[in-house]
Amino acid sequence: MTNQTKSQFIAVASITSELSAVMVVAKEISLAAANAKAIAFRAGDKAKGFQPITDFINELAKETIELVTNINIYALVLYRLTVNEFQKTVAYNKFELAAKLAGDAVYAKSMQEPVEHAKLSMQDCQRQFKRDVSQLLGQLEAVMHHARAARVIAANSRIEASQAGEYLQSLQAVAESVDKAAHTIHDNVQRCRIALSIYRNS
């Protein structure tokens, strides 16, 4: 296995690992939203501005979970494609070697067709992998967008929390947890993007 093939396997495998952490954090945001809603309800008019924010947070968490679920399915397809590409590359190299070793064998020429076919299959896989990576990067960008939106919501939450009197601390804690979660999502997804970007279709 070449170093590039190893890196490709590692890059694809790391997506699933990074995204499972994103999934945990997105579920934490969802919980924070439920918690914030309960506090805002108790606070009544003092947290009036906070109430619609909790709905936003919840919606954002749900959408992130949905996006990550889809990306995970896509990552599995990408992993299978990587395995397939590896098998096709091994076959092509072995077929070429067989043709070379056959030298002046009576039927050496009959190896030309399998060699050509294996080469085309390998190139097909390589092209498809690059195409799929480009699409996956697009989906990861959508998750990044959600993370950025969550940070804006966290900033708004802090402002609204400051108006909430004795509920200030509780609501600020919610804003902090949303901000922290948004950071984590951003960092994990960014690592996925960096790992994959070298394989992007140019």
């Binding site: 072995k94 077929f95 070697l97 067989a98 043709a99 070379k100 070793l101 056959a102 030298g103 064998a105 009576v106 039927y107 050496a108 009959s110 190896m111």
Partner: peptide
């Protein structure tokens, strides 16, 4: 595989 295939191609 490769040496075996190459050998079979003699036959």
């Amino acid at each position: 595989f490769a040496p075996m295939m190459a050998a079979v191609l003699h036959h």
